[in-house]
Every structure is written in structure tokens, then in C-alpha cells.
Amino acid sequence: MRPVPRHLSAAAPLRRALTPLAPVSARSRWLLGLAFFVIFVALWTWFTLGGWVSPTFLASPPTMLRQAWLLLTEYGFVKDIGMTVWRVLAGFVLAAAVALPLGIAMGAYKGIEAFFEPFVSFCRYLPASAFIPLLILWAGIGEAQKILVIFIGSVFQITLMVAVTVGSARRDLVEAAYTLGAGHRGIVTRVLIPGAAPGIAETLRLVLGWAWTYVIVAELIGSSSGIGHMITDSQALLNTGQIIFGIITIGLIGLLSDLAFKALNQRLFAWSLLP
């Protein structure tokens, strides 16, 4: 058997990556993802240090790193990060506590779905930021207002997506459970909820990412702490290095939480990944 030329064997992973629906290895996935960031930072460095963009409008990577060090060591940015994470978790957990039982009920019982679905669908299209003036009047500019912005932005999305997931249960499993003597309650607790659990977990993972966009909007108005507050202050000072680092911090925290959520889902619902 003739050996495969080295240049052809090296190009094989690239060919697989460009083949429609062809799986790639975990190592190739990490390398490709890392390559994008390397290219992005290289272009960013070239445009800023090469004089193509004014530092007033876009700081260079070295400048951003210097500003990041100042934020972390002198300006108490760690506390701002902690406050933002707390607000996201509080609003998201509150939204999930309301949306999960309501979404399951809507997916399982068509009468409940007919009653709530028009209102939930209507509210789903309302931007959470539009409620900020009302929430400031109702709850002031403290923590409650910011948590409620995240709650409003998340609860209707979770409710409708959970309802769709639960309502998409396989009919043959439901009929089989009835045949084996299960009642209405047993159908919900032993068929619908277990079958929809992986989809519900994936819904929570996706909406958690959206919650981060709501908290920054909430912190831009009437806030004295948080990542959004720091970004607003940096804008007034035209400090684009701090603004960029704040945005990168949000992305990193969101990415880490997403990876943790995905790993937890894979561990809890490993059976759903079987072919």
C-alpha cells in the first residue's frame, strides 16, 4: 500500500471541515476556534498600531491590556464583575422559577396553552429595555429594577420555548403510557417532563446568554456599579481601551457559563446524545 503524501494527509482535516455536515474532531474544533481569535487579534493590531484607525475611536490591544490592568488593580472592576454576575443569576433564576412550571403546563395541556399563549407571545416581542422607565418609577434605581429587567427579558422567552419543547413529545410514547395504565398526571411527570428535559436544559442555556444583554442595558441607566456602569463612565472619558475590555469581559464570562452549562447538560442527559 502506497503511503499518503504528507501534504495530502495534512489537508485532510481541512477537507473534512469544509464537507457539508461532516463531523470534526474535538481537537480540530478547538484549533479552528482558536485560529479565528488569533486572526482577529492580528487584524485588530494591524489596523490600530498601523495607524489605520485613530486611538480615540479604537484602542490597540496593548493599550487595552494596560487599561484592563488598571481596572482590575486600581478601579475595583472585580466588584463590578461580581455585581453584574449576581444580577444576571438573580433575574435568570427568578424567570426560570416562573417560566418552567408555566411552560410545562402550556405544553402539556392545550387548554392552558390556549389561555396563556396569546399573552406570552405578545410579551415576547416587547423589548425589555422599554420597561426601564416604568421599572424605575415602580422599583427605583436599585437592584430590584435591574433584576426585573432581566426577568422580563427572559421569562416569556423561556415559557414559550419550554411549552413548544414539552408539546413536541412523541405521541407513540404517550399512547404506550396510557396503554400501560398511566393517568394524566403520570403522563406529565413520567413521559412529557423526562422526554423534554434535555430540550428544556438547552433552552435555559440559550436564554442565559440573552440575559447578559439585558443586564448591560439595565446597568447603563441609573447604576453605580457593574460592567455596564463602567462602560458608560469610560465612554464619557473616551477611554475605548476600558470599553473594549468591558465588552471582552462580558463575552468571556458568557462563554465560560455557556461551556459550564453545556457540560452539565451533557452529564445529566448523556442518554439523549446516543444515536
Rank of each mutant, 00 (worst) to 15 (best):
T203S: 02
L148K: 11
T48C: 00
I187A: 10
W210L: 09
V188Y: 12
I81M: 06
A99L: 03
Q157S: 12
A35H: 01
A22Q: 13
R185W: 15
P127S: 06
G228I: 11
I243M: 05
S25A: 13
E117A: 15
L100T: 12
G33H: 00
A10C: 05
I253V: 12
N239C: 11
L148I: 14
V191R: 04
A128W: 07
T84M: 02
S272E: 03
V38I: 09
T165A: 10
A35T: 09
H7G: 03
M1R: 10
S223A: 14
M106S: 06
V164P: 02
A11K: 05
E202K: 15
V98S: 10
S129H: 10
G140P: 11
T159K: 03
S25N: 11
Q145G: 05
Q235G: 06
F269I: 04
I112T: 04
V4C: 04
L100N: 00
A236L: 15
A196H: 15
V85Y: 11
T63Q: 06
G251Q: 06
G167L: 00
L8W: 15
T63Y: 11
A108L: 07
L255F: 14
A17Q: 05
G140D: 05
A35S: 04
F40Q: 07
I248L: 12
N239L: 05
A128F: 13
E202F: 02
I158P: 00
P23C: 01
S25Y: 08
I158W: 06
C123G: 09
L18R: 01
L252I: 15
A10Y: 14
S60M: 09
T249L: 13
G209M: 02
I231H: 05
P198N: 04
T213K: 05
E117R: 13
L255Y: 13
H184T: 15
I132Y: 09
W138C: 09
M64V: 14
V155K: 00
P20M: 11
F151V: 13
E74M: 15
T179I: 03
T179S: 13
I39V: 14
S224K: 13
T19V: 10
G183A: 05
G82Y: 04
I231R: 04
